[in-house]
């Protein structure tokens, strides 16, 4: 592969995944441009999480491969961050230490860690929980730690797997704007998985709609609207309805 200078952050080529006899992903190919914000929607169990797990080498493809910056994907090489679907804060660390965890693994200098963690604590309103342990917090606050931990990495590829599923509407709206802000500020590439069509239309530059498993890409919808978007804008509503109608026959 000699494509270092290509415009693509992520290239997915003929990706197929079986778990034993279970055929989950079926010959999927698509690209994600550098700096793009892509949402992936699809029915539960179609393989969305599996796709991210393949991209981070938690699993390996049955056939085909995934490339980041033109190289076969490898979390050791690339600066990526993953917000998992299930709770993933480290229960034995305080909120602050959880936020530092990934940066310390990456051997970021201490002064830089201090700076970024303070910033995240401020941004996500975690000051009062700084020295608390995750089990002392509500589910949505615990999820904020995980999002903060990912943001603090300043990743150039941010992977989020239904990150706001557990949250109340107010916090969700706030964090949706926050992820947009981060994305613009860092110029990172974001792959965001969600169940919520409105959320997808609110965030994404492009929405990938997956079919039931074995999943293929049913359709790509480009959302050509500037941020911040207005959910009551007729164009917004039309797109939301269109995507909803496309997934109705699941």
């Amino acid at each position: 592969m000699n494509k270092k200078n290509s415009d693509y952050k992520v290239e997915v080529k003929n990706l197929t995944k079986y778990f034993g006899d279970l055929h989950v992903l079926d010959d999927i190919s698509f690209n994600i441009k550098k700096g793009e914000f892509v949402c992936v929607v699809g029915p539960t169990g179609c393989g969305k999480t599996t796709f991210l797990n393949l991209l981070t080498r938690i699993y390996y493809p049955t056939e085909g491969d995934l490339y980041i910056d033109g190289e076969s994907a490898d979390p050791k090489k690339h600066n990526l961050a993953f917000v998992f679907q299930e709770p993933s804060s480290l229960p034995w660390l305080t909120v602050e230490k959880n936020l530092r965890f990934g940066l310390e693994l990456k051997k970021v200098p201490k002064s830089e860690i201090d700076r970024r963690v303070e910033e995240i604590i401020r941004l996500l309103g975690l000051e009062q929980f700084r020295n608390s342990y995750p089990h002392q917090l509500s589910v949505s606050t615990a999820q904020r730690i995980i999002i903060g931990r990912a943001f603090a990495m300043n990743p150039d590829l941010l992977l989020m797997d239904e990150p706001y599923g557990q949250m109340d509407v107010k916090l969700r709206f706030y964090l949706e704007d926050e992820v947009i802000r981060l994305w613009k500020e860092l110029g990172s590439t974001v792959v965001f998985i969600t169940h919520n069509i409105e959320e997808a239309v609110y965030l994404a530059e492009r929405v990938l709609i997956l079919t039931n498993k074995p999943a293929t890409i049913k359709e790509e919808v480009v959302i050509d609207m500037p941020h911040p978007r207005d959910v009551s804008d007729p164009k917004f509503i039309e797109l939301r309805k269109y995507i909803t109608s496309q997934i109705k026959w699941w």
């Binding site: 797990n53 981070t56 080498r57 938690i58 979390p75 050791k76 090489k77 990526l80 961050a81 993953f82 998992f84 299930e86 709770p87 993933s88 480290l90 965890f101 990934g102 693994l105 990456k106 990495m153 992977l159």
Partner: peptide
């Protein structure tokens, strides 16, 4: 497993 994956996606080695 997800906690292992947290570290893995940060690029940590198996020993780490």
């Amino acid at each position: 497993p997800v906690l292992i994956n947290v570290a893995k996606t940060c690029g940590a080695s198996n020993f780490t």
